[in-house]
Nucleic acid binder design. Structure first.
Lengths: 259, 259
DNA sequence: TATTATTGTAATAAAATGAGACAATAAAAT
DNA sequence: ATTTTATTGTCTCATTTTATTACAATAATA
């Protein structure tokens, strides 16, 4: 790297030290469940999208902001699932390599080289027609199927595995499909979401009966152009207001549906 | 407070700034589910037991350590459940009052007056024969039934409610009864734990059949001295090793059983 | 017009749960 | 010593839920 044109690093005045977040962004394209991995330029390091929390910012908001800055994705469904607090969570060499590869001049006591406690979130999006963009830091970013992840830096593999575990547990409770599918979808597509997350095949008739009996779906017109067979109905999720968080939930959903 | 005999405050050199933990400690005495609340002397402030994380310490260990220091409880079952990261989580006046009530001299820029992100844990213990002791900071500490909590400072009420919600969700999955009961217990006691956590009565025969069919219980000798009626069997939980964490789980359990 | 593959639903079987009945029994009362 | 009492463990039957199979409906293709 040329030792000239050094850039200005983010200042510790702006952020809380020792505190970071990482996000496991699940995307579904109708076929496969994938997650978003970014690669730091000129380093070969693969990582979950993450960032830092400003001194006067809600952690939830920081994650939303950082995700938009780093991935171009806005207003996506986010849920905190675990905080990783091992004292071994520091990687000064790696962080230095990444920063220097981007032409930053890094002092030995620079705050990003310290130990970090990371609050981890998972996000759910339908990634048809969505093209995540790397940010100005020149990272590349792309989708990887869960069984074809590159080797991830630090404990990001462990974070990813925990995210999937929690996602499975929340599958029915949180109506996960709602966030991963377009507004209207077929029963087959919904089943595919479940199968991808659970990692196993489900029985068609049982699944259909179970979903219909839940009183969460609205049936719409049929979807033609499916092939040489009976056309399936399209469904959407009912927008039920179950609790005090309903309005913000609906915001999420509405925005998601317009992606 | 006399302005003499000022004591030395914990230094920011030792701890990570802006990072705290809070713990919701559930205890069961055979009858009622209670949680441990501490009262800061001379202030009237009630709070969950909490503390700070040393710069070179795992967060999990910090919670365990702090709990021992503050409550006298050792090696109890702990599980992280949520991190509270709202930017409004600071209470400089309250913290100053607490510290000054304990004869500390507090500078305006003292780190404990800052905003804190709090990692929340719940703990489960059987509190027969356990007498929590307040620490040297002269707090008093005692058990409160969930429906008779005093007004808690900051967002500690919200933290408590979230803990209970998570505990309910984990009831079957995590074998919560194992941590709250003595090593040997009757079916009625186990049912009582479930009822207290769920906040509703359960049907005796259905509960008994469900528990026995789970293949998690070992039946032991009968417990006499129960009253003018048939004596119930005593049960204990099977110690199954399901995954790689099994050995540490067993440690928890063994230690818990000797409390 | 027949063929094909898939969909929606009904019919039936199996499993899980709810609800009640009842005999067994340990301690207390007589 | 006998009866009474309350609770326990288990069984039965009813109801609900879930699994499995079967099959008619139908949109595109041959």
């Amino acid at each position: 790297m040329a030792p000239n044109k050094k850039k200005q690093l983010p200042s510790i005045e702006e952020f809380m030290p020792h505190l970071a977040y990482d996000s496991v962004i699940f995307g579904f394209n109708g076929q496969q469940l994938k997650i978003l991995i970014l690669e730091y330029q000129n380093t070969g390091f693969f990582a979950l999208p993450g960032g830092f929390v400003k001194r006067n910012e809600n952690v939830d908001d920081a994650v939303m902001r950082g995700l938009k800055e780093r991935t171009g994705l806005d207003n996506i469904y986010l849920e905190q699932f675990h905080t990783f607090g091992s004292s071994s969570r520091s990687a000064p060499e790696i962080m230095r390599t990444i920063l220097e590869a981007n032409d930053y001049d890094v002092e030995d006591d620079y705050w990003m080289l310290d130990r970090f406690v990371s609050i981890a979130y998972y996000a759910l999006i339908n990634f048809n027609n969505v093209e995540p963009k790397p940010d100005e830091l020149s990272d590349s970013i792309s989708w990887y199927p869960l069984d074809q992840l590159p080797p991830l830096m630090m404990d990001h593999q462990e974070i990813t595995e925990k995210a999937l575990e929690i996602l499975r547990d929340n599958l029915d409770k949180k109506l996960v499909g709602m966030k991963l599918l377009p507004q209207k979808f077929t029963m087959k597509e919904l089943q595919k979401v479940y199968e991808e997350i659970l990692g196993k095949k489900l029985r068609r008739t049982t699944f259909q009966r179970k979903m219909l009996s839940k009183d969460i779906l609205v049936r719409h017109e049929k979807l033609f152009a499916g092939g040489a067979h009976k056309a399936p109905y399209l469904y959407s999720f009912k927008t039920v207001q179950t609790d005090q968080k309903a309005s913000s939930e609906i915001t999420h959903q509405t925005i998601k549906n317009t992606i």
